[in-house]
Design a protein around this nucleic acid. Structure first.
Ligand SMILES: NC(=O)c1ccc[n+]([C@@H]2O[C@H](COP(=O)([O-])OP(=O)(O)OC[C@H]3O[C@@H](n4cnc5c(N)ncnc54)[C@H](O)[C@@H]3O)[C@@H](O)[C@H]2O)c1
Ligand SMILES: NC(=O)c1ccc[n+]([C@@H]2O[C@H](COP(=O)([O-])OP(=O)(O)OC[C@H]3O[C@@H](n4cnc5c(N)ncnc54)[C@H](O)[C@@H]3O)[C@@H](O)[C@H]2O)c1
Lengths: 218, 218
DNA sequence: CCCTTTTTGTGAAAACTATCACATAAAAAG
DNA sequence: CTTTTTATGTGATAGTTTTCACAAAAAGGG
């Protein structure tokens, strides 16, 4: 399984948007206001107001005709949909450059996500890196099963990625955010979400190149 | 402009796949083989063979009935489509954790991408970080225009992102890979591609939570 | 209290994307 | 040379996602 086919008729693209709405709503709430309109949310994340309302409609979220939405209510509902309760524990395998960057990022804890530990085969990386303890990779499976960790971040080189995934899955993770540029296969049921930063950069380059009326070059 | 609406009737989703095909083709070529079938490419990136052939069909790429594709030919064609010639210069604004990780990543140069320099307002970050020179941010605009840099990576805090984008665009960049979790607006024509790692992680968490038959919780 | 304004909620339509299925070509086998 | 096998290329189909457009509800003004 790489991504679940379908969760109850929901448009899959609306999930990342819900997360973005959440970010915006927190900002609006912090700014003191408790009222927000679909067009404001739309502008804040660069989409149309109709799209915002359609997303809400899909999840049965209702506002007030003419009165917009209560920011705090909306935030609560979206957080419930996303399942973002405090204390969502995550571990990182591979405390190289990317693992370090992720472990130091302050933004996750604001969303109730707690990066508990890192694991690495390199003894030099073990000890304490910034915020979190880093253990030898041999302890990874046990840590996951003992602490009932459900989600892991995979930030090891591509060669090691499948092997590391297998260990995590044996430990009991149910979801993995994979940064290694390879397609992985989980033995048991485990959702794998790939983030390939190389692809993202080359995707951008394609558009930049294409708009620069490349075409005479070949 | 956030992403160009349409480039010549091409399915936008096929572009990241082309990049992935390219990665696979390079591996296959390195392994000695010069022949590949649509189902092999499909398996390697976790999609269907029909999808692979449809992507190729869309770009007018043709193989041999029954004989699959010549790996080297295919690679050449895809690289031409993507515009991936050697020496695509990129700069990074914000040499914090993420900027450092990206600047140290070896995978980019294999694709002809060269990260030339970093820029940061923090004098402590300036000098040489790993592979690349890091200059004060005040020099960013001049560097971009003098060296005709077309693409920038934005890895500064969200507060500073719009300001930093404006400087980059004034310098003359035509594309920006934005890691800051905010929606940005370019003054002039500049393609902005957002990568929001928080959203990616929370997207995964949604599926993990949803599959764990959450629902009785509310 | 009624009229105007504004913003929601949502079916219907449009646009986009993926899958199917099969004709077609070429290689291999007989 | 003919038959069989295998994999491509693509029109047709199915599915998904976004946009449109407008009725309906609520707020506010006169
Ligand atoms: N850094 C980037 O900007 C970037 C960009 C694109 C893709 N990626 C991908 O992200 C992943 C991580 O990148 P990085 O730059 O952090 O790499 P890195 O080399 O800096 O770090 C990898 C870490 O994994 C550890 N490791 C290796 N094998 C292991 C194993 N079997 N078990 C546990 N730990 C192991 C290494 O000791 C090292 O600390 C790689 O797959 C890379 O291709 C990174
Ligand atoms: N690190 C992560 O894992 C992670 C995860 C999700 C999102 N992000 C986002 O990516 C961006 C970078 O994250 P990070 O962890 O590298 O942050 P960081 O704080 O480590 O680094 C930010 C860097 O930007 C520099 N900077 C600040 N203002 C600047 C300006 N005006 N001009 C030039 N440089 C400036 C700072 O000096 C610092 O070196 C942030 O927007 C963050 O929200 C990061």
């Amino acid at each position: 399984m790489n991504l679940p086919q379908k969760i109850a008729g929901v448009n899959k693209n609306s999930i990342p948007r819900l997360v973005q709405y959440k970010y915006v709503l927190k900002k609006v709430l912090a700014s003191g206001s408790d009222r927000v309109y679909s067009n404001e949310l739309a502008d804040a994340i660069g989409i149309t107001a109709a799209q915002v309302r359609k997303d809400f409609s899909l999840f049965g979220i209702m506002g007030n005709k003419r009165g917009g939405y209560s920011v705090s209510d909306l935030l609560g509902i979206i957080q419930r949909i996303l399942g973002s309760q405090p204390g969502q524990d995550v571990i990182i395998a591979g405390m190289g450059h990317l693992g370090i960057a992720l472990s130091n990022y302050k933004g996750f804890e604001k969303e109730g996500i707690c990066i508990r530990a890192g694991f690495d085969i390199d003894p030099v990386k073990c000890g304490v890196q910034g915020n979190i303890p880093v253990y030898p990779f041999s302890e990874c499976e046990g840590y996951i099963s003992n602490r009932n960790i459900k989600v892991g971040i995979l930030a090891v080189p591509a060669d090691a990625a499948q092997l590391v995934l297998d260990v995590m899955v044996r430990g009991g993770v149910e979801g993995v955010l994979n940064f290694a540029p390879v397609h992985l296969m989980a033995q048991r049921s485990c959702v794998i979400h790939d983030v390939n930063l190389g692809v993202e950069l080359e995707f951008l380059l394609y558009f930049v190149n294409a708009l620069n009326n490349r075409g005479g070059k070949a």
